[in-house]
Simulated scan of single mutants.
Amino acid sequence: MKFLLGLLAALPLRIGYALAGVMFLLLYYLFRYRRNTVRDNLRWAFPEKSAAERKEIERASYRHFCNLFFEILSSTRMRQEDIAKRVTFKNIELLATATENFEKQAIVLLIHQGNWEWMLHAAMLEIGVPIDPVYKTLHSTVWNQFIFDARSRFGASPMPIERVGREVIRGRRRRRLIGMLADQTGPKAAGYWRNFLNRPASFYRGADKLAQTLNIPVVFAKCRRVKTGHYEVLFEEISLPPHDANPELILERYVLAAEAAIAEQPETYLWTNRRWKKTPPDSFAIQQQEHIAAVEADSSIRERNP
C-alpha cells in the first residue's frame, strides 16, 4: 500500500486528474462507495433542494473527492512554491491583524472543504510562520503515516487530538498558528452538541477552551475551489481576546461560518464522511435550549444569521 501511494504521488498532476476521472466512474457507478451515506447527508442538509439538484451536487462532490485524492498525494512531492501558486489568499491582512502581524499565536479553524492540505502548505509560505495542524488518528496506519509525513514536510508539527491540550500549552511561547479541522465528530458525552446541517452533531471542545486558556484569537479559514487544481482562501474573525465568558459562543460562530461556507459551495465538502453516526445524549434538548438562550444575545451571531 505504501509503495502504491508513493508511486501515485510521483505521477504528474495532469495524469493524476486523468486517473481521478477513472476513479470517479469506479467509485460512483461500479462500487457505489458510500452512495447511501452521501445521499442521506445531502437530503438532510438541503431539504429545500429538489432530488435532481441534490443528485447534481452528489456527482460533483464525488468528482471533487477523486481530484482531491490525487492532489493530496501530489502534495508529498510538490514544491511548496508550486502549491502556493495554486492557492490565493484574499484577505490575509485579517489574519495578520488578529495575530499582530503573526507575532502571536492563533487558532485557525477549518472544515473538510476545498483542499485543506494545500491551504496549510501555501499559508505557511505566504506568512512565514509554521501552522501546526491538529489531526485525528486514522484507522489505517499506512494512510495515517502518509498524511502525517505530508503535513510535516515544510516545518509543521502535527498534533494528535488526544494530546492537543498538552502540546499547545507546552509550546505556547512558539511563534506559530494552530490549525484545526474542527468539523470532525466529537465525543458523545463531553462534546459540544448542536444542530449542524439540520441534524444533531457533536464537536470537540478544544478550540474554545484553548483560546480562553491561552488568550489567543480564533479565525475561520474558508477554502473555495476556483477551478480544478486552484483554490482561494478567505478568513473570518471568530473571536478575539478578551473572549466572552461563555466559551460556547466560539463554537457557535464556527458552526454558523461552516454552514455558510458549505451552502456556498456544497460540492467541495466531504460528504462521504459519516459525520452524524452518533446519537445525541438524552440531555440534548436541554443543552439546545441553554445554548440558544446564550447565543441570542451575541451580536456577531445575529449578523451572520439575521
Rank of each mutant, 00 (worst) to 15 (best):
Leu197Gly: 07
Val218Lys: 02
Pro281Trp: 02
Phe154Tyr: 13
Tyr17His: 02
Ser50Glu: 09
Pro187Met: 13
Pro217Ser: 08
Lys136Gly: 08
Asp208Phe: 07
Arg176Thr: 10
Glu248Ser: 11
Phe70Thr: 01
Arg253Lys: 09
Ser75Trp: 01
Ala245Asp: 14
Val233Ser: 02
Ser152Cys: 12
Glu48Gly: 14
Ser157Val: 11
Leu19Glu: 09
Tyr29Thr: 09
Trp193Thr: 03
Ala258Thr: 05
Leu42Arg: 08
Gly206Asn: 03
Ile262Ser: 08
Glu232Gln: 12
Val108Ile: 14
Leu249Pro: 01
Arg59Thr: 06
Thr88Val: 06
Leu197Thr: 03
Tyr28Arg: 09
Thr99Tyr: 03
Arg54Ala: 13
Pro241Gln: 14
Trp116Ser: 09
Ile72Pro: 00
Ala201Glu: 07
Pro12Glu: 02
Lys49His: 11
Ser74Trp: 13
Lys136Glu: 11
Leu234Ala: 05
Leu125Gln: 12
Val142Arg: 10
Pro242Asn: 06
Ser202Ala: 15
Gln288Val: 01
Lys104Phe: 10
Gln184Ala: 08
Val38Pro: 04
Arg175Thr: 13
Thr97Ala: 13
Ile107Met: 01
Gln145Asp: 14
Leu8Ala: 03
Leu251Val: 06
Leu94Arg: 13
Ile262Gly: 01
Arg34Gln: 02
Ser61Thr: 10
Lys49Asp: 08
Ser157Trp: 11
Arg302Ile: 02
Arg54Leu: 07
Leu5Ile: 07
Leu270Val: 02
Arg14Asp: 02
Glu71Ser: 03
Glu237Leu: 10
Arg14Ala: 02
Glu267Phe: 08
Lys90Met: 12
Ala150Phe: 04
Thr213Arg: 15
Lys278Ile: 10
Arg176Lys: 14
Arg79Leu: 11
Gly229Ser: 12
Ile92Asn: 04
Gly186Gln: 02
Leu110Asp: 00
Arg194Cys: 13
Ile301Pro: 00
Leu13Cys: 08
Ile83Val: 15
Glu126Cys: 06
Cys223Ala: 09
Phe65Asn: 10
Ala18Glu: 06
Cys66Gly: 05
Leu251Ile: 15
Ser74Tyr: 01
Pro217Asn: 07
Arg224Val: 03
Glu53Gln: 15
Ala123Arg: 06
Leu13Lys: 03
Gly128Ile: 00
His291Lys: 09
Phe3Thr: 14
Asn305Thr: 02
Glu71Val: 07
Thr97Trp: 05
Lys2Ala: 14
Arg59Lys: 15
Gly165Arg: 12
Glu117Thr: 00
Val219Thr: 02
Ile131Phe: 14
Val226Arg: 05
Val87Phe: 07
Pro158Asp: 11
Arg304Phe: 00
Gln212Ile: 11
Arg63Thr: 04
Leu181Tyr: 01
His243Lys: 13
Phe31Gln: 02
Arg170Leu: 14
Ala182Arg: 00
His291Ile: 00
Arg59Asn: 11
Ala221Gln: 06
Thr99His: 05
Ser239Ala: 15
Lys2Ser: 09
Trp118Leu: 03
Lys2Leu: 11
Ile107Lys: 06
Leu19Asn: 11
Tyr29Trp: 15
Pro266His: 04
Pro47Trp: 12
Pro158Cys: 09
Asn198Arg: 11
Asp40Trp: 05
Leu95Thr: 05
